[in-house]
Simulated scan of single mutants.
Amino acid sequence: MGPLSQEQLRLGRIGYLNVLPIYYPLESGIVSHNFEIVSGTPSFLNGLMARGDLDLSVVSSIEYARHPERYFILPDLSISCRGAVKSVLLLSRNPIDQLDGETILVSSQSHTSVALLKILLSLFLGKKAVFEPASCTEALERGKQPVAFLAIGDEALRLRHHPEYPYQWDLGQVWREWTGLPFVFALWVIQRQAVERWNGRLAPAIRSLSSAKKWGRTHLNEICLQATGENILDIEELHAYYDCLGYNLDSDEQRGLELFYRCLHRIEEIGEVPGLEIYSISEHSGGSFQPIERFNFPLNGAMLFNQTN
Results as ranks from 00 to 15, higher is better:
L90D: 13
N94V: 14
K144G: 07
S113R: 04
H111A: 14
L89G: 02
N94R: 15
A129G: 02
R93T: 08
V88C: 11
K128V: 10
L123G: 03
A134P: 05
V147I: 09
L91T: 06
V106F: 04
K128F: 04
A134N: 04
K144Y: 13
E102S: 15
T112C: 07
H161N: 13
L91A: 03
S113I: 08
T103H: 01
F149G: 01
R160D: 05
S113D: 15
L159F: 04
L120F: 01
G153A: 01
S113Y: 07
A129Q: 02
K128M: 10
L125M: 10
K127T: 14
L121Y: 03
V106G: 06
I104L: 12
I119Y: 04
S92L: 05
F149H: 04
L89E: 04
S135F: 14
Q145F: 07
E132R: 14
S107C: 07
L90F: 05
E132V: 12
E102D: 15
R142T: 09
I104D: 07
V130K: 11
I119G: 03
R160H: 14
R142L: 13
H111E: 13
L121P: 09
L89C: 02
D100R: 14
H161T: 13
E141T: 08
L99V: 10
T137Q: 10
P146F: 03
L159S: 02
L116W: 03
A148G: 06
R93Q: 15
S92F: 02
L157I: 07
L116C: 03
V147L: 01
L105A: 04
A156D: 07
F149N: 02
G153L: 02
E155P: 01
D154T: 06
E132P: 00
L116A: 07
L125Y: 15
G126N: 14
K127N: 15
F149M: 00
L99S: 10
L99K: 11
V88N: 03
S135Y: 13
L120N: 08
V88Y: 09
L89N: 03
A148R: 00
K144E: 14
K127P: 11
A139E: 13
